[in-house]
Design a protein around this nucleic acid. Sequence first.
RNA 1: GUGAAUGUAGCUCAGUCGGUUAGAGCGCCGGUCUGUGGCACCGGAGGCCGGGGGUUCGAGUCCCCUCAUUCACCCCA
Length: 435
Amino acid sequence: MDKITAPRGTQDIIPPGSRQWRELEAAIGDLADRFAYSEIRTPTFEATELFVRGVGETTDIVEKEMYTFEDRKGRSLTLRPEWTAGVVRAVLEHNLLNQGPLKLYYTGSIFRYERPQKGRYRQAHQFGVECLGYADAAADAEVIQLPIELLTRFGIGGLRVELNSIGDAVCRPAYRQALLDHFRPVADQLSADSQRRLERNPLRILDSKDLRDKPFIDRAPSYLDHLCADCQAHFATLRGHLDALGIRYAVNPRLVRGLDYYTRTVFEVHSDALGAQSTILGGGRYDGLVEQLGGPPTPAVGFAMGLERFLMVREELGTATESVRRGIQIIALGQAACNRLVPVLAGLRRVYPEPADMDYGDRKLGAQLKLADRNGARLAAICGDAELERGILILRDLETKEQREVTLPAGTDVGALLTTICQMAAAPAPALLQE
RNA sequence: GUGAAUGUAGCUCAGUCGGUUAGAGCGCCGGUCUGUGGCACCGGAGGCCGGGGGUUCGAGUCCCCUCAUUCACCCCA
């Protein structure tokens, strides 16, 4: 019988690495809160049609990367390949825009059917925000600032912030025509991919990495020269905000992005620590999407960050925090002590806000201390027959080796024990006790 | 979807020209230390050598197929 393994491109998040995820998710929640974003959770799968209409029929995501299946009634459903379409759907379904601007954030899985490689998985995790209802460039600046704040908080530097504007419905047609005029005469010299893109989505030729395309791309007209007055003003205002916020960035006129819904601002943040998939986060403005999905005309801007990639960069840069000793390991020697300490453990878990654990394996003292050490406990509470007789517990600080005797609590009443534990661990006593 | 590399113990990896009983370090369990962890020393458990077929007296090693992983292309988080 073959061993069953996790499906291709998926990963188990297991200890001790799962701790990094907890830390990251906690920081995300805190930061989103400070920026006044509220959490939204949407279904893991949606009607396939939502992504086709939202993300765009000619995108790689829709053309070849979706996990699509039929349910028992023959409805076509798709595991979300990105969050924005589903969030906008939920916002419209619940009429959340009726109360003015709306700021939402999410964290969770996305699914794309791709060959896995470094920083690319079939199930990945993203943190992102959607800022709905603001046309002003201050919103764009906020949406760029937030993830950079997160990266900074984790000490991650050496990043490249790239920025571009890809115009709006007013100036897009003229620029598209300019691109066609530039590429059509040399179409037969372009890569097969780019020839296909020419008629369907000429903007996408700009981010081709094919060497045959490069000379033509280098000479292609820049959108920045074709922006309409409004788009130009928006871009200038955004740049002013970013400068004022002290965010360093590079304007990259070739930056386009693979999703069809972007207008005006697009941006990406790259790290050299990631290998070929260097994008740690990306986003932009999507002023047409809400309307396209059946809602009122609504300006919007957002970003999405790859959590795997974030953690990979952090790992690479060695900014992960070391774990500190904390909590208590209860060591019972013999059955009588074990019976006596089970309620003590239960009592501690009610009032002591750190990990409290006990080995149920009837191991000798040395082995149990070793276990406590490995578990990263700060204190050990030792009790065998001798201590039972005297009605005490021995508290040992695993770091300083200091030992104290304390009276053995009766049942789950661990108040006095807790005081000593907090003294020894040099931790402030919980409010419960200070009353 | 295309290409390349790699699959040997829980983990990281040796394994010569095909040769007899498959190795190390770390980790795990136990002992030295009848009740005090990290260190040291000693011992032990743990392997269908990814799977299938072939060549051979003999295959972890050579050949074919297959599966998986990794990296890269396309594109993105």
